[in-house]
């Protein structure tokens, strides 16, 4: 047997292996973009649950209590997170633009939201406050977000 014959055989084996490899790389690559979006979406979901729980905590603590919260990840230029407490249906609406994509999460608030308030987190200003305020004339406790 000459050497050339073995190498020809070998070459084809390599081609077939390469084909499989290319396929694998292709699949991995297509997975990545999904994973990146999923990563941000999950972080925002956790953040929305965190805000909901904080809201309850502040409401339970009562008049004058303030909690300072921060954006869950470092915001780049152009990114923002908008948090709105809506008295309609008692909802916490969160809209975020991260890396050019818009994300939206909605959480039901377990405590009453009596007045609409909203805050926008930007790279320059990534923190906000959740405050409880007692209104004596109405006898009701207001919770609101502010920067």
């Amino acid at each position: 047997m000459k050497r050339g014959q073995i190498s020809l055989d070998f070459l084809f084996a390599v081609t077939l292996i390469a084909l499989t490899m290319v396929n694998l790389v292709y699949i991995a690559n297509s997975e990545r973009s999904h994973a990146e979006t999923f990563d941000t979406a999950t972080k925002l979901k956790i953040f929305s649950v965190d805000v909901r729980d904080s809201l309850t905590k502040v409401y339970a603590a009562g008049n004058g209590f303030t909690l300072r919260k921060e954006a869950p990840f470092t915001l780049q230029g152009g990114d923002y997170i908008n948090i709105t407490l809506s008295p309609v249906d008692n909802l916490i609406n969160m809209t975020a633009v991260v890396g050019g994509e818009t994300y939206r999460v909605v959480q039901k608030s377990p405590v009453p939201i009596l007045r609409e308030s909203s805050v926008k987190l930007t790279p320059e200003n990534p923190e906000f406050y959740i405050t409880a305020q007692y209104n004596e004339t109405e006898g009701r406790l207001y919770v609101r977000v502010s920067s």
């Binding site: 979006t37 999923f38 979406a41 999950t42 925002l44 979901k45 994509e101 818009t102 994300y103 939206r104 999460v105």
Partner: peptide, 11 residues
């Protein structure tokens, strides 16, 4: 996975 997160991505 996307449905379970319950986060709407505009796209």
């Amino acid at each position: 996975a996307y449905l379970n997160t319950g986060v709407v991505v505009n796209g």
